[in-house]
């Protein structure tokens, strides 16, 4: 197995594992039960996507995908903050989400 081939295989394996990670995170997101669970699960999935970008950049040798990773890393926590704010205010209002 050449180093390139090895690299390719590992990247593919890594991609699949990240995919699994996203899937598992998704299960938490779908089942909840608490709001915080879901918010954290979403954040985790976003982070996993950053990893996907990185891996993909390695695999295709195109740095363009790293740019996505950077941008996403910068912005992704915005939605978490927004959802957290939402959860907080909801708690204050004693409003149950469902």
């Amino acid at each position: 197995m050449t180093p390139t081939a090895f690299m390719q295989t590992s990247v593919t394996l890594a991609l699949i594992m990240v995919g699994l990670a996203i899937f598992i995170g998704f299960i938490r997101l779908a089942r909840g039960p608490s709001l915080a669970d879901r918010v954290v699960a979403l954040d985790m999935m976003t982070t996993a996507v950053i990893v996907v970008c990185g891996l993909y950049a390695v695999r295709t040798d195109a740095e363009a995908f790293l740019d996505i990773a950077v941008a996403l890393a910068l912005v992704s926590f915005l939605s978490v903050v927004a959802l957290a704010r939402y959860a907080e205010r909801l708690g204050r209002r004693n409003d149950r989400d469902d």
Partner: peptide, 22 residues
């Protein structure tokens, strides 16, 4: 020349102030 441009830039810039407003 690389990924980016007005749209993405605008979105990111606005996101900054959205965060600030939070």
């Amino acid at each position: 020349n690389s990924p980016g441009g007005g749209f993405i830039g605008g979105l990111i810039g606005a996101a900054g102030f959205v965060l600030y407003s939070f």
